[in-house]
Design a binder for these strands. Sequence first.
DNA 1: GTTAGCACTCAAACGAACCGAGTGCTAAAG
DNA 2: CTTTAGCACTCGGTTCGTTTGAGTGCTAAC
Lengths: 345, 345
Amino acid sequence: MLTPRQELILSAIIEDYVRMAEPVGSRALAKHDDIQFSPATIRNEMADLEEMGYLTQLHTSSGRIPSQKGYRFYVDNLLQQQGGFDRATGERLREFFTSRIDEVEKAVREVTTVLSSLTRQTAIVLGPKMYTEKVRKIELVPLARGRVVAILVTDAGHVENCAVQLSEDIRVEDLESIVHVLNDKLVGVPISRLRSNLYSKLSEELAQTVERFEDALAVLNEVCQVSQREEPVYIGGASNMLSQPEFHDVEKAQTILTLLEQGQTVASLFPTEGLGLQVRIGAENPIGALQDCTVITTTYSLHGRPVGHIGVLGPTRMDYNRIMQILNYTSESMTQMMSRWIEGH
Amino acid sequence: MLTPRQELILSAIIEDYVRMAEPVGSRALAKHDDIQFSPATIRNEMADLEEMGYLTQLHTSSGRIPSQKGYRFYVDNLLQQQGGFDRATGERLREFFTSRIDEVEKAVREVTTVLSSLTRQTAIVLGPKMYTEKVRKIELVPLARGRVVAILVTDAGHVENCAVQLSEDIRVEDLESIVHVLNDKLVGVPISRLRSNLYSKLSEELAQTVERFEDALAVLNEVCQVSQREEPVYIGGASNMLSQPEFHDVEKAQTILTLLEQGQTVASLFPTEGLGLQVRIGAENPIGALQDCTVITTTYSLHGRPVGHIGVLGPTRMDYNRIMQILNYTSESMTQMMSRWIEGH
DNA sequence: GTTAGCACTCAAACGAACCGAGTGCTAAAG
DNA sequence: CTTTAGCACTCGGTTCGTTTGAGTGCTAAC
């Protein structure tokens, strides 16, 4: 639909604008190396591009800035994954992923720092969900007066725990028998099936076989609850927002920072389906407050299935190419890392 | 050193300034209910107070604002813990602490939300440290190829875990014997003594008695490491900063928000000794960037010993009385809560 | 010791003038 | 038919002087 020259100009405008954060005019564009036309020609093309909706003007005598549609076209058609990121960036990423991190949770937590400092935007990571993992072991540790800690370990080495209040007069042997039965029935079962049908079936069975069945039920109940915990949300570099000129308006900045404090809301930024890179520009986001923001997301996987999300949030004026590359690399590295630690069953 | 009238005026100025966030002049003060003097008199007193360093002026023809010294005097001498906080605040706090929260960690995490929304400032909580707790149980769960999850449970129901890499050919029986020995030696030992002398002593002993002593050492090592983990830092309502007029300057706001993203730095805000309420005004803070901020902190305890910190961070212009009361109440409630869950051995 | 009166100060708000980056249009050149 | 040079026009941002008003310090009277 666009002539090659128009595409060239649109590209140049976006790249300039991303760098300088200011409306770009025809003269500035004409100075670009790969643009050989006079300002007047460029003005004509820009007028056309604006008419088609790819550019906008803040006021009659200002330069043009890309519209949401402009960014979309750019991301979809003009971004031919040119080259990798710069040397230093690659260095930093490689260093992080080859450093001696030995735990999934730690890696997931710290990757936000790397991502946000590399992109100078806000990085968001949704911790791996246990959904596809299987029960490896259930443990009960008595504390005092019927107070017990229930611990659930998955085959991926994930540990969750919670407190359970049982009958005050419960004995150690009772606990042992409960643990025994639960492990017997549940080891190897995928977390995803813990709640649904299995729960009701198993609770019936317990009622018939186990002596202290009320307590056993309580434990089973808590274990199931704990296994359904929503995955943790990690956010890094939220303060980077403030260095973006678009958020020099404190009101806007506050709206977004407040939003980032609600884990629930943040989690909803990630698409529920589809894997691989996804870019949501401005109003494409599910959340109204993010009209002027872009969220780029991708997933990381275990055993071929996506188990977590990583993303970068920033103003629509962001370096799409670079950030997408960084996210791609990070996604792959995390996937590798996971599979290295959590080897097949 | 100050006449009663000067104290009255200083109090009034601070309270006005805290409410309105604008320099207060003599005429505005004269309208106060409990001030019966004419503006001229007040001007004279204000000039004296300024000379003594309790007030400052932004420019010759502006009203006065309290200096750091002024706030300090106010907090030390003029704040006679008048009445409790307002009804709604008490309501909210009571509701939170009587709600069915059943885990220390959850309570600690969520109290930041309540605190920050009540104070409209940034709330910081340092999770309970395990320092005084005792080892209740150590557990090893094998995953695959020598990869093992080590789990440490304390008598307070605290669970920490980490991954350990052992010899690939290790057998389940080896693990069992390691667990057995470790539990034998370590159950009942206070976390605080795990690292120091005990560690070296025990490692010698292990070397002599256990078969797979290298692996046993690895486990012991990790367990000790994990027990020394710095307590978690929870922050709530950092975005509240931005609604304070003193942080309408984006630069300042960013400095502080960036600072809040470094857990290490945040932890250093809390005094290492002394318990009970502590107020640090402006430059009294250890961190230079907090020149214009006040940090009010207190502790919460278990078995009479402080195990964690709670605090509120905001501009020096804050409602000292109210926030101190809220922190006091919160501190007491958390202490009660802890002792209710974690009953004496 | 307290207060009324008054001259003085100074930040903030207002507005006119100016500047300049940038546009759209027209007409000439290729 | 496309490209470009020229030119009038637009409009946000800056500068600079003026005005306004809240607030002070000082002095003299109560």
